[in-house]
Deep mutational scan, measured.
Amino acid sequence: DIIVVALYDYEAIHHEDLSFQKGDQMVVLEESGEWWKARSLATRKEGYIPSNYVARVD
């Protein structure tokens, strides 16, 4: 699995987006352009995240 960590807070604009806080970790389900589908490890919610707001966890 690809795990990413949020570098900034993000508040969902569209209903299919996933809100998150800086430091939250998410599993990337699908990488497509600038918006990736991800699942929050904390809340288990799924949605689209801006890929430039996150960094991969090695």
Rank of each mutant, 00 (worst) to 15 (best):
F20V: 09
D9Q: 11
E11F: 09
V57M: 11
A55N: 09
A12V: 03
Q25H: 03
V28E: 00
E46G: 05
V54F: 02
D9R: 06
Y10N: 01
Q21H: 15
S19E: 08
L41R: 08
A55K: 05
V5A: 12
E11L: 09
I3M: 13
S51P: 13
Y48A: 10
K37V: 11
L29K: 08
S32A: 11
N52D: 12
I3E: 11
V57F: 09
A38W: 00
D58I: 04
Y48M: 15
S40D: 11
P50W: 08
G47T: 01
G47D: 01
Y48L: 15
I49L: 06
K37W: 11
D17G: 10
M26L: 11
D17H: 14
P50E: 01
D9P: 12
Q25P: 09
H14L: 09
V54Y: 01
V57Q: 10
M26E: 00
F20C: 12
I3A: 04
I49A: 01
I49S: 00
L29H: 03
H14W: 04
H14A: 07
V28L: 13
A42S: 06
K37N: 02
R56T: 10
G47W: 00
T43E: 10
S40Y: 02
E31V: 08
D24A: 12
R56S: 10
L29F: 06
V57N: 09
I3K: 10
R39W: 07
D1V: 10
M26I: 05
V54W: 01
I2P: 04
S40I: 11
Y48F: 13
I49T: 01
V4R: 02
D58G: 10
V27T: 07
L41Q: 08
D1E: 07
E46T: 09
G23R: 03
V57G: 09
E16N: 07
W35F: 15
V5N: 04
T43D: 12
D24N: 06
T43G: 08
F20A: 02
E31T: 07
V27I: 15
A42T: 12
K45C: 13
S19R: 07
S19H: 10
E30S: 03
M26G: 00
V57D: 04
R39E: 07
S40V: 10
R44G: 14
D17Y: 07
Y53K: 06
S40A: 14
Y48I: 15
P50F: 09
V27C: 15
L29T: 14
I3D: 00
Y10C: 07
Q25Y: 10
V4M: 02
Y48C: 10
D9V: 01
E11K: 13
I3C: 04
Y10G: 00
D17E: 15
M26F: 14
V27D: 02
A38K: 02
Y48D: 04
V28G: 00
E46S: 06
I3N: 05
V28F: 04
V57T: 13
D24R: 00
Q21K: 14
Y8V: 09
G33V: 05
V54A: 04
Y53L: 14
I49Q: 00
K45F: 13
S19A: 05
K22T: 13
V27E: 13
G23E: 09
A12P: 15
E11G: 08
E16W: 10
K22L: 05
V5F: 15
S32G: 13
E46C: 11
L7V: 06
G47P: 03
D9M: 07
E30Q: 12
Y53N: 03
S40H: 14
D9S: 10
A6M: 01
A38V: 13
A42R: 14
R39T: 08
F20D: 02
T43A: 06
K45M: 14
G47K: 00
H15C: 15
Y53V: 04
S40L: 13
E31S: 11
K37F: 14
I3G: 03
M26W: 01
D58P: 08
Q25N: 11
D58T: 07
I13T: 06
D58R: 07
L7C: 07
S32I: 07
D58Y: 12
S40G: 08
S40F: 06
E11Y: 04
D1Y: 05
A55V: 08
A38S: 05
D17I: 11
Y53A: 11
A42P: 12
P50K: 14
L41T: 07
T43W: 02
V4W: 06
G33K: 11
W35D: 09
V4A: 09
K45P: 01
